[in-house]
Every structure is written in C-alpha cells, then in structure tokens.
C-alpha cells in the first residue's frame, strides 16, 4: 500500500547527513572561519607582550655600519638603531641593565621622534605572510597613574605613539607598571642643608628640592628668596609635603616626619649663571655655611609611577 504521510525519505536523510558532515568538517579544519580569537589573531597577544617587554625591560642597542661602534645609547645614534628599548642604563658599552621598568627620559624623547616605518620595523610590529609584510595597527602610550591616565608631556610631546585603537576590531593589550624619568631633584637631609643653595642654570625643567628629617619643635616654612628677591608661592614655586604616597600642600607649619618638596619654576633659572637660593624656616636651625650646597652636584633623576600601555590590532 502506498503511504502518503509526510515521512522522511532516505534521500533526504542521506543529503542532510552529508551536509552536516561537510559543515562540521569545514568548521573543524578552518578555525578562523567561525571563531573570533582564533589562531591568526592570538598572535597579536604575543606581539603586544613582546613589544611591551622589550620597551620596558631592554635598553636598546645600536651598531654602526662598519661595526666599530656599538652601545645601548641608541638615542644618540638614531641612524644606526638595531633595537629600541626605553630602560635607563648608566653604562652604555655593556649590554646588561639592572634597571628594568625604569624608563629614561632621553630615550622616550627620541622614541617620540623616530619615523613610523622605523618603529614598525625595529619593534617587529608586522605580520609576515609569504614574504609580504603587513603592518599591525598599534598604540603605545605612557600615562600617569596619579593623574588618572593622562599621558606625560616630555619636551612638548605627549608620550603617545601610533593611532587610536578601533572599536570594531580585536585588540591585544598589555599594561606594564613602570617608573618614568620626568625631571630631576636634589634629596637633602636637613642636617646637610645650608641656608643658601647654589643653582647653576640654565634649566629646562623645574628645579625640585626634597628635604627630609627636619627637626625642631613646630617647624614652619617662611619664604624662599632668589638673588634676594622674595618668590611668590604658586606662581614661582610650590611647596608640598609627602607622607607615604600622598602629597598635600603646605601652608606654613610642617610635621617633622614629612618630606618637604619645593618645586621651582624653570623660568627662574634660564641663563647660565649661578643662582643663589635662600630658604627660610622658623624653629629650624640650618647650617649657615659656607660652603653652600650645590643643587647641580646633588641632583638625581626624578621618577613618577606610570603605566605603559601597548595596544596592537
């Protein structure tokens, strides 16, 4: 008897099985087809990680054409750069650095000036497909932790390289905690501080003096004079106290355990003279000198905590 109900035909069963097998096969063997975050894209993670590590932990390296000169101070030999790295190094002849994650100001300055092709080539920000190079998009920025992620400004340039990350693409991102050299400061103990400090100009960045271990009962800050002219707080200089990691403004009285930070505007020291800076405190006895403390001899680089963010797409 002929059955006219809607049953599944063997033909259909065979067809749909074949189709499903073919589909499964395709999905299994071409992973990039249906999955985001596939093998091709995850190499972005490695690129971002590698770039961030090289920049934060390596000092860089240069070698000239004849091979007779080399060193880590690539920022002074920009035409012979072999590798770009931002970590500080006080011995440019040796390849070793003992200061990973501490970034040099001059290296960052040069990093902002290198041409686009140079960055992509030296940091390996490209994919090599059968001998053809495809450059990745990238964004490398160094931002302040204390200032809510605002980039630093070094020599008039914001510390950002590359273009803005697109919204509609998968991005690999790595953040590193680093210290960035932003200027210089003299750290002085109260017992070695003299009433007068000699500062030899010119300076392009602010002059910072940190005073530790002030003694006396109820000490307070009176004023600062430069070449016998009294300076104005806020416009010529700022004075802050630092307890642990928090800074607050000083209005007169000082706590003994505080670190006092005096930050003088660099405009005050713009010619190559030796300036005489007098600090005056009440209830604090300082060595009247001479000899006076020399700022230039005592100044060391000043660092700020920062995030270095590398994004690649």
């Amino acid at each position: 008897m002929m059955d006219e109900k809607g049953q599944i035909a063997v033909d259909f069963l065979l067809g749909i099985s074949l189709f499903l097998i073919a589909l499964t096969f395709t999905v299994q063997f071409i992973p990039g087809m249906f999955m985001s975050g596939s093998a091709g894209e995850s190499s972005l993670d490695y690129t971002a990680y590698r770039t961030a590590t090289i920049l934060a932990e390596d000092t860089g390296w240069w070698v000239n054409n004849t091979g007779s000169g080399s060193g880590t101070d690539w920022e002074a030999h920009t035409s012979d750069i072999k590798r770009i790295g931002l970590a500080v190094d006080d011995e440019p002849r040796s390849k070793l650095t003992n200061s990973p994650n501490i970034l040099s100001k001059t290296k960052i300055e040069q990093f902002m000036l290198i041409d686009e092709d140079g960055i992509i080539e030296k940091l390996g920000l490209y994919n090599n497909v059968d001998g053809t190079l495809f450059a990745y998009g990238y964004n490398i920025s160094i931002v302040s932790i204390e200032n809510n992620g605002i980039p630093f400004v070094i020599n008039g340039n914001a510390t950002v390289r590359g273009s803005t990350a697109p919204d509609d693409q998968e991005i690999a991102k790595i953040t590193r905690v680093v210290l960035v050299e932003t200027g210089h400061a003299a750290v002085l103990n109260a017992n070695e501080l003299t009433d007068t400090i000699n500062i030899k100009g010119p300076y392009e960045e602010n002059v910072t003096i940190q005073i530790r271990n002030l003694n006396g009962t109820n000490p307070s800050f009176l004023n600062a004079t430069l070449e016998n002219v009294t300076l104005t707080q806020h416009s010529d200089f700022t004075i802050t106290r630092k307890t642990g990691w928090t800074s607050s403004e000083v209005n007169g009285s000082i706590h003994i355990n505080d670190i006092i930070c005096l930050d003088f505007d660099h405009g005050l020291f713009n010619s190559s003279n030796t300036y005489r800076l007098d600090l005056s405190f009440s209830n604090v006895t300082l060595d009247p000198g001479p000899p006076f403390v020399s700022y230039n001899k005592r100044s060391t680089p000043l660092y700020e905590p920062a995030y270095m963010i590398v994004e690649v797409w």
Binding site: I174, V177, V178, W245, I259, P301, Y303
Partner: peptide, 28 residues
Amino acid sequence: LAVNVQLEQMSSDALGVLDMAPISLVQY
C-alpha cells in the same frame, strides 16, 4: 591566558618597581 598574563605581569611589576624605586620618588 592573556588576562592571567596581564595580571601576573602587573603584580610582579608593582613589586619590582617598589623594590627599585629611587629615594626621590618614595618615602619607603
């Protein structure tokens, strides 16, 4: 894995930075 790598990197960076921090930056 990438999220874990990021977390591990940042926490070891933080300890390292705190260890190497120069005197002008931190009190301790």
